[in-house]
Design a protein around this nucleic acid. Structure first.
Lengths: 123, 123
DNA sequence: TGCGTATATCGACGTTTGTCAATCTCTGAC
DNA sequence: GTCAGAGATTGACAAACGTCGATATACGCA
């Protein structure tokens, strides 16, 4: 990266080479794979209707939430709700249990907490 | 949902109507506006390259990070990096300070922590 | 067996997103 | 004033996303 600066040893003021700051790479930086994984989790949380689904489901901790209760408060049609639920389940945030014809959902214990911790403990 | 139930007026016991669970709405559920706001923040975190930018910037806390250092470790072109930086700034996660020709970025104090808290304190 | 219902899946559509080449704006140096 | 470089903006494009109607699947009941 140095062109022909004669005295490169002692001086730290560079004419045009690296005038701003240090590269800051190769250290304990979030790697591409980890970033991809973490981003996929946040993507599951990046839709307002999915956040509201999580809120509703986590509101009744004792009794699980069934799908049939979600379309009305959300103002969404049943296929759309099913689509969002699938995304939340695949993200590991919701647990699906099918009993008979009905499907009941509950928040996976510790899932939100671990995501929350990843936010503050970001390297 | 009701086909041809003759007496639809006063009765609240439904033969096939609500067999699963309670509606669980109208309580302390995440409202649409709050959900929209929260989702917009998580959307800023839902891209792996933006997470890596946050990681790099937060890695050198003392000295801020300049834009010119980001394209190389990320493998992105300068306009793309600028685009992601804009999203992070508008989400309130990064602070931009332009000194001369260069722009330096730093993590907004408490921004990630407040998001992290919203995750576990979800109603 | 056959019917009604709850949920999942499919297909389509408009919208949003990530990326980059090209260009513009601004600043410092000569 | 002129020039060079840093970074922001624009426009374009493919890919991904959210939504919903239509349909399929699975289960309980008579």
């Amino acid at each position: 990266m140095s062109t022909d600066t004669s005295t490169e040893s002692g001086l730290n003021l560079q004419p045009f080479e690296s005038p701003c700051c240090v590269p800051a790479e190769g250290k304990d930086i979030l790697q591409a794979e980890e970033a991809e994984l973490l981003a996929s989790h946040f993507k599951a949380l990046s839709d307002p209707n999915r956040l509201r689904i999580l809120s509703i489901v986590s509101a009744n901790k004792d009794s699980e939430t069934c799908v049939c209760d979600l379309p009305e408060p959300l103002g969404l049609k049943q296929p759309t709700v099913s689509h969002h639920l699938k995304i939340l389940v695949e993200a590991g945030l919701l647990h699906r249990e099918k009993r008979g014809v009905w499907a009941y959902f509950s928040v996976v214990p510790g899932a939100l907490e671990s995501l929350s911790a990843a936010l503050v403990a970001k390297k």
